[in-house]
Each structure stands twice: as structure tokens, then as C-alpha cells.
Design a protein around this nucleic acid. Structure first.
Length: 291
DNA sequence: AGCTACTCCTGGTAGC
DNA sequence: TGCTACCAGGAGTAGC
């Protein structure tokens, strides 16, 4: 008889979109509720979430499968099944959530996929805007796109980063958002990192000198690490309703979503521009426009 | 290689 | 108050 997981887990995003720190937090939160659990039943209310895998095929693949490992790559959450059971690769996109609910918990009305586990809990993929994906595959390699290095891995050194920047000739903002360049950064943390490094989002990557590249590298590491720590402290394994307390990291933003408010560095008003169809927040005093 | 535009979606909000 | 219009935005794709 499988042990009953004592606490249901709910996750709520206050604003913005899940990026590396949020995805890491989700992986950590669902991991203890999933590993060693076997799937007993499947319910899918929005088949497109399965990314081209039909509902019958998905059901056939996952019912009876046992979760063995839950890990993150970029903004993807990978759930490996034991043996040759393949895996589920999930992406939260804009509004996706993953949580392990206890049997009596209220079912979120935006639930797209429910997996009933052998301890009675239910693993749910919830997604308001339906952009998220929850895909079964034989192997992660079959569905994960080519991704750049993990910014928190040892291989992501300042030296590697400096050279990678110089090999490209792209504006910093779209380059840092490019998951094949570095995996896991999104709109929020790119704006924050560029501000912390005093670099304009339109600055071309191969124009950074050594000091600027190191500054940006340092900013990315610091911001991601602190965000993970804050998420870790603002979420825990106690049950929390969907209306639960808001997270803390939003208050740490220097520029994101702070248009018109004072720059924490120089007190000038934060500006909002559009770069590559993305809302981009910056301080035009601290982040001087190139040329 | 790098850019722009388009697609997928709907809750929230601004404007009237 | 109630309606409509529009925006946010990750990633995949197409076209230049």
C-alpha cells in the first residue's frame, strides 16, 4: 500500500510568467508527491495540451507508469517514468501550473490534465490560456528543442559567456530570450539582469567589453539564485489555496512592471519600450542607449 | 544569421 | 453599471 502523501501542494503566480526560478520551484514542489507514485487514471479536458499525442495514446502510455525522476531543463519540467515508460515533458508557458492535490481538494476549473496517483492524490496540470504543454515522449530528447547551457551550471562561466556574446551580433534582449543561447531566461529576468548590469536592451552583443560581459554574467547568476531562494521561501509544502498569499519576489523588481516608477539606482522614471514585440523595461539613465 | 510578423488563448483592464 | 476593445507574452513557424 502506497503511503499517503500528507500535504497537497498548490502554486500560485502573482504576476508575470514562470521562468527558470519558478519552474525550478514547481519541480521541487511536485517532486516528493510524484516520485515512486504510479498513475492509475487519466483525465484530459483540453487535448491540445498533449501536443499532438492523442488522448487514447497518452492514456495507454501513462496509466500504470511509475514516476522515477522529476527534473528541469530550461523552462521545461521533465518527468521520467521507470523502466522504458518514457517521460512527460511539460511547459507552463504563460499561465500553466502543476500541483498535487489531495482527494478532497477543490478542482481548479482551468485544469487540463489530471493524473490520479496510487496514493489517492491527483497530479493536475492547470492552464488558463492553454498555451502550456504536457507531452508524453519515449525520451526527453524527442521533444526538447536545442537549448543553451543552464545558467546555474558550472559550464556557464563568465569566460564562456563573454565569448558567446562576441560570437553573435544580436541585440542583448532578444539574444538572452533565445533559449538556444541560454536556457531559462524570460522577459522578467532579462529586463532585471540588463538593468543590474547597466546595459541597454538594444546593445549589440559583440560590443560588450570584458568588464561589461562579466557584469551581465554576474547579474544573471545573482538574480536567478536570489529568485530561486525567494520562491523557495515563499512556497512550502503546506496546503495553500489558489487564493493563497502572494509571493515575495515581485517586490524585488527593479524595472519589470515599474513603468513610471523611480529607478532603484538613480530614481529616474522607468521607461517602457518594445523590443521584438516584447514589453521591455529599463532606466534610460542607467542603461545608456548605444550610439 | 538575424529580423519581423503571425499563431495560439483568455482574464483583466482601460475606455467609453 | 455594462459594454467592447485590446493587451500580455513563450515558443514555434514562416518569410524575407
Amino acid at each position: 500500500m502506497a503511503p499517503v502523501y500528507p500535504c497537497a501542494i498548490a502554486i500560485r503566480y502573482r504576476s508575470g510568467v514562470p521562468e527558470l526560478p519558478e519552474v525550478e520551484t514547481v519541480a521541487r514542489l511536485i517532486r516528493p508527491g510524484l516520485v515512486d507514485r504510479r498513475i492509475e487514471a487519466v483525465k484530459v479536458t483540453w487535448p491540445r495540451t498533449l501536443g499532438g499525442v492523442s488522448v487514447p495514446r497518452f492514456r495507454k502510455r501513462v496509466v500504470g507508469a511509475r514516476f522515477e525522476r522529476v527534473w528541469r531543463r530550461g523552462k521545461y519540467i521533465v518527468m521520467d517514468f521507470a523502466g522504458d515508460g518514457g517521460c512527460i515533458v511539460g511547459h507552463l508557458r504563460m499561465t500553466g501550473r502543476m500541483q498535487v492535490d489531495a482527494p478532497g481538494d477543490e478542482v481548479n476549473r482551468f485544469t487540463k490534465v489530471s493524473l490520479t496517483l496510487d496514493d489517492g492524490n491527483v497530479f493536475r496540470f492547470i492552464d488558463v490560456r492553454k498555451f502550456g504543454r504536457f507531452v508524453w515522449a519515449p525520451s526527453p530528447d524527442d521533444v526538447l528543442p536545442a537549448l543553451g547551457p543552464e545558467p546555474l551550471d558550472e559550464q556557464f562561466t563568465a569566460d564562456w559567456f563573454r565569448q558567446a556574446l562576441s560570437r553573435r551580433r544580436r541585440a542583448l534582449k532578444p539574444l538572452l530570450l533565445d533559449q538556444s543561447f541560454v536556457a531559462g531566461l524570460g522577459n522578467i529576468y532579462v529586463d532585471e539582469a540588463l538593468h543590474a548590469a547597466h546595459l541597454h536592451p538594444l546593445r549589440t552583443s559583440d560590443t560588450l567589453n570584458r568588464a561589461a560581459a562579466i557584469r551581465l554574467h554576474e547579474a544573471i547568476l545573482t538574480i536567478l539564485t536570489e529568485a530561486i531562494e525567494r520562491e523557495g521561501s515563499s512556497f512550502d509544502t503546506f496546503y495553500r489555496t489558489p487564493e493563497g498569499q502572494p509571493g515575495a519576489y515581485q517586490e524585488q523588481f527593479g524595472v519589470y512592471g515599474r513603468t513610471g516608477k523611480p529607478c532603484p539606482n538613480c530614481a529616474r522614471a522607468i521607461k517602457r519600450i518594445v523590443v521584438g514585440q516584447r514589453g521591455t523595461h529599463l532606466c534610460t539613465n542607467c542603461q545608456r542607449r548605444p550610439r
